[in-house]
Design a protein around this nucleic acid. Structure first.
Lengths: 339, 339
DNA sequence: ATATATTTTTTACGCACGAGAAGTTTAAAC
DNA sequence: GTTTAAACTTCTCGTGCGTAAAAAATATAT
């Protein structure tokens, strides 16, 4: 039992011709069942695999799918990346994961690398405000791409995300029904365009309900949202900038930091009479269930978003046309103890 | 300005020969400065890159470095992966990241995929107890590999991790000096071998200090440590299984869940007189600073571990011999409000 | 049994680059 | 001005597989 070095030798060992083996690896169902068995029997005996590089060199389209997220240390993106990865593998593709780590230059480098990998398609969650729109536009012209999480305005690119106006509408309505109307706590210069939509929707819903909106914006750059929420929240609490006893945070990570600020300031959080403040978030971050108190929030539909993003991409890859569709999913109110 | 299709055309455009261009891309310093400038000038005009697949097909060694972590949705692994990635890029390598998602079958698939990518080396954080040791051993025989985070016993493979005995020793000593001696809170069947070392070290240190050890083990499988810590912790609290008012958790994620259990059980956590229980963790998880109260813990030296893992790998790649060295880094006590 | 359709084999070429040998230019050293 | 070594060029071959066309083998239908 000598070692197989290439497809030629493997085909000889299996007793079929090399092009037949090649065909088998492109689609096992494209060969007759009897020959398929012979190939798979040989595959058991010698565990050999075709050379990935030689395979992809001549293929019109590789089976590679690029997944790019802005910040992998955020479990939200880790979870959605995981979900997307699994779906790609199930569909017979080879997913490769990249994180921009919050750095626009790195995002561009990743797009460059991906371009040279000639992927079948790419699922891209852009950095947002700091992204190089021109670079993304050029990239999408070359490679079938579906954006998710965060859209890039003004471009004709497929996008799958959450219905941010609905998010804020849902939670603001809930908070107003169950207590004082909320103030809105956010970053002054959010990296993510979703944040702006959420603020606007907060303002609109408050107006619709006949309440005066109060927006508390705090400084801070980058993706260390918890720290921004904590330090900014502590300052805002000290300066009594919250006009009501209810705070709606722009996202859960900010809320997690804000809860820490409340704890460190001795402000009790919750919806029971002995509590001084109610805090809510948006996203249903994986850790939000484990804050103290557990965070009331609006859950993003991870599963639907990842499924629809992958389906949209593969559909357009099969059809050979650029994906265009924009699809938004609604959020679900998750009531816990913080509000 | 026509589009460049391959290295031949690019070489012509740059006014040098193709092998010279090839040499440049292998090591820009291996060509004369004047020709380097000509190549880089052409690189600016036409943004062209050599075909990755054709490059790697004939190279004895690719520039690919595989990074495998057991569970990417854990920010600890996301952070260390990020750090390793950055170092690889700086060293001129092409990192590719994989997560086993807690699934041994997937871990094996990833190793298979990696093998066919013929990487220069691999940095592997195994699943631990559930890993297929035979598969890992075979893989390491073919590919230069450095293990990190979790060792695989009985194999002669390089490993970089934390000095777990020192961790428990450090925090147990601290807790005993500042209050009641701690009970040890852990999973009954931990996925990670580090957990066993931590328990043993807890027992040894308690004995050394003349205290009676109390180990509270809770059931639960998988990588959802927070939920295991919360549900198991709630039950243990209700059953009054903690013999002292101090709980040392096997790791921070378990501690985060346990803090939630304390909150939901109405047990106040902290080291002030008005608190009923002290809770400490081990790892200094990225979120531990944002729990309520912030978690006292032992910090893993992320930076040193990732740096040393990468250096060990590249050293052995250059020398062309299998990496063997085992290196452990000490932890640092991080005192916060929980204990 | 014959005709037809489907697979498989054979043959041949192409891909984009790495690698080595041998010859040529360049630049520095004597 | 000659020597010498480094850098560069050209030539050629090799890599492992995709792909296409035509010929041969096999299966299915009539």
């Amino acid at each position: 039992m000598t070692k197989i070095r290439n497809m030629e030798e493997f085909a000889a060992a299996a007793g079929v011709s090399r092009p037949t083996v090649s065909k088998y690896f492109n689609d096992p169902n494209s060969v007759r069942p009897s020959t398929r068995e012979r190939i798979e029997a040989a595959l058991e005996r010698y565990d050999w695999r075709p050379n990935i590089f030689a395979m992809n060199q001549n293929r019109k389209l590789t089976k590679i799918v690029g997944i790019v997220v802005p910040y992998l240390a955020d479990p939200f993106f880790a979870e959605i990346a995981r979900s997307i990865e699994r779906r790609c593998i199930e569909a017979g593709y080879l997913p490769t994961l990249y994180s921009s780590h919050g750095d626009p230059a790195l995002e561009n480098d990743i797009l460059d690398t991906l371009r040279s990998l000639r992927p079948a398609g790419v699922l891209l969650a852009p950095l947002g405000r700091t992204s190089d729109k021109g670079a993304i536009e050029k990239f999408c012209a070359d490679v079938p791409t579906v954006l998710f999480d965060s859209n890039v305005s003004g471009l004709e690119i497929a996008y799958v995300g959450s219905d941010n106006p609905q998010f804020a509408d849902l939670i603001v309505d809930y908070l107003c029904r169950t207590g004082e109307p909320p103030c809105f706590f956010e970053m002054k210069n959010p990296a993510n365009p979703n944040a702006n939509k959420r603020r606007q929707s907060y303002l609109a819903t408050m107006e619709r309900l006949g309440h005066t909106p109060h927006v508390v914006s705090v400084g801070g750059e980058g993706w260390d949202f918890e720290e921004i929420g904590r330090s900014g929240g502590a300052k805002a609490l000290a300066e009594k900038r919250f006009a009501t006893n209810t705070v709606l945070c722009s996202n859960d990570r900010l809320a997690i930091g804000f809860l820490t600020a409340c704890y460190e300031s001795g402000v009790r959080v919750g919806r029971t009479p002995d509590c001084a403040i109610r805090v809510a978030g948006q996203d249903d971050h994986p850790f939000s269930r484990y804050t103290c108190p557990p965070l009331t929030t609006v859950a993003q539909d991870y599963d639907a978003i990842s499924r629809h993003a992958v389906e949209t991409l593969f559909q357009s890859v099969e059809d050979g046309e650029k994906p265009r569709e924009v699809k938004l999913f609604e959020g679900r109110l998750v009531m816990r103890d913080s509000a």
